Computed example of a mutant assay.
Amino acid sequence: MRSVHFALILLASVVAAGAARADSSFPFGMEMTLDALPQPGSKRVPDLDIGDNGEVVLELWCKGGKGQFSVAGNTVIFVAGQMEDRSCPAAKAQADDDLLAALTEATTWKRQGDDVSFIGIRTLKFRLNTN
């Protein structure tokens, strides 16, 4: 009986370790939303739709566009492409520019469950859209 109990504990540990490893992978092929409040007068919150090869479609507070993530271990490089200027009010355009700058300045990333953080001069926290 004792060996069966030990085997069950060992099996549970292996399964938990596998789940933790899978949980720490970069979220290629997923969409995530910035952990932030909408700008005044809007319901929109920035989100990133990351493709399987790191290509990303960005929908910010006002602007939208494409970019590319390159990932090696916990190191990340983000390069923004051309952003679509949608006649944004000055405050939203500045917030979009600040967000793009923070993503570009990020040098590392980490994932904890459904939370993904890009870390640089400023840390940006995103939540994976799992529904």
Rank of each mutant, 00 (worst) to 15 (best):
D85R: 02
A36K: 03
L8N: 10
N53F: 09
S117V: 03
T130G: 00
V76Y: 04
K43L: 09
I50N: 02
E59R: 13
K43G: 07
T104L: 01
E59L: 07
P38Y: 09
A80M: 04
W61C: 00
N53I: 03
Q112N: 13
A22N: 12
I121Q: 01
A106V: 06
F118H: 00
A72S: 10
P40D: 10
W109R: 04
D98T: 09
T108R: 07
L128K: 06
S24Q: 15
A36H: 03
N74F: 04
A19M: 14
R2Q: 12
T75R: 10
Q68M: 14
T108N: 05
C62Y: 00
F126I: 04
E84H: 13
K125N: 12
A7C: 09
D47E: 02
S42C: 03
S24I: 08
L10S: 13
I119E: 06
K43N: 08
H5I: 13
P89V: 14
P46S: 04
A91N: 11
K125M: 05
S3G: 04
C88I: 13
A72F: 02
L99W: 06
M30K: 14
H5Q: 10
T33L: 11
V56D: 01
L37I: 01
G64F: 02
A90L: 09
A102D: 14
R2L: 12
